[in-house]
């Protein structure tokens, strides 16, 4: 019953989004009369819940979402996306869809760019106000995801605002809570028996974490997923390619293959954007020689690095 209820709400929000998107498209074309936005609190409980999915897809087409996909490996996560520019005159280097939120957490979106920028700002803000300034450490991925999801949920229930028109993928690395030696022992058994489970450590052992957040405020953990345009086919592709115990390098490779399947146009360092969660990138530290300092685990690959991966495909 609870599920059903949530679905209805989604539907309403998506419908609203859809219309909002339509309105904006129309507005830009200026060829059709403007459709007034409907208040998002109006929704029909009689419509079957399935419709929400349809309107989700419809919305993504309208907004020309771009495929975003991620793969979580045993030692990291890949976020990959196509940077689609509407004109050859744009400067691709200034376009950026993948953002760093905390040194260990990165985020990417499908949907409306301006809404995403606002959410990135808010995510960075709450990670400090709700966490860094209280505990002097950065939030674990799930906590940040919950905070961002709260921001998005509140937009569905507040008056005078429309929901955020984006789906997010948030990838991060968490420290585990198990004592070191215990975690090491458990790690050894999995490696020693050559039976990699591919499970990320969860909150006990820590490791890479990947979440999807929807405009409703619902969030889902994934091992690999895609959002945006042709997400369905990308996910089917990922289902075939994903194996347990994937290494980060393989994950980048699979991500590029999946991207290649689903996008038209050339793939090069300028048109592809990749963010990875991997081992600490100490070379990104501003100052050297600080005791106990570790580099950010999240970083974006440079166009040159992307080119290198593409040539190796």
């Amino acid at each position: 019953m609870k599920e059903l209820y949530l679905c209805w709400s989604f539907d309403a929000h998506w419908r609203c989004l859809e219309l909002e998107a339509q309105r904006q498209l129309d507005y830009s074309k200026a060829s059709q009369p403007r459709i007034p936005p409907i208040p998002h609190s109006k929704f029909s409980p009689n419509r079957p819940p399935l419709v929400s999915k349809v309107s989700l897809r419809a919305a993504s087409n309208h907004l020309s979402f771009i495929t975003i996909l991620t793969l979580s490996a045993t030692n990291g996560i890949v976020l990959a996306t196509e940077k689609k520019s509407s004109s050859p005159l744009t400067d691709p280097a200034s376009l950026s869809k993948i953002s760093l939120i905390t040194p260990n957490i990165g985020m990417v979106y499908a949907g409306m760019g301006p809404d995403y920028r606002v959410l990135v700002d808010k995510a960075r803000k709450v990670s400090h106000t709700n966490y860094k300034r209280v505990y002097n450490e950065y939030p674990p991925t799930r906590i940040l995801v919950q905070d961002v999801a709260r921001v998005m949920q509140e937009a569905t229930q507040s008056g005078g605002v429309r929901p955020y028109g984006v789906s997010l993928l948030i990838a991060g690395w968490d420290e585990g809570i198990l004592p070191d030696e215990q975690a090491a022992v458990e790690g050894e058994t999995t490696e020693g028996e050559k039976k990699p489970t591919g499970k990320t450590g969860g909150i006990l052992k820590g490791g890479p974490m990947l979440y999807q957040v929807d405009p409703s405020g619902a969030y889902y953990p994934w091992k690999a997923t895609a959002i945006g345009k042709s997400a369905t086919s990308a996910k089917t592709f990922l289902e075939k390619r994903y194996t347990e115990g994937l290494e980060l390098e393989d994950a980048v490779h699979i991500a590029l293959l999946t991207l290649k399947e689903t996008i038209e146009g050339e793939m090069n360092g300028q048109t592809i954007e990749i963010g990875i969660v991997g081992p600490p990138a100490d070379h990104l530290l501003g100052v050297e020689g600080v005791e106990g300092a570790t580099g950010p685990r999240f970083r974006k690959l440079t166009p040159q690095e992307i080119e290198d991966y593409l040539t190796n495909m």
Partner: peptide
């Protein structure tokens, strides 16, 4: 309750401080 884990002393110390 929020984090589903026990607080570490160093984290707690920073909580006390703030």
């Amino acid at each position: 309750l929020r984090e589903e884990r026990a607080i570490a002393p160093s984290t707690f110390a920073n909580l006390v401080s703030s």
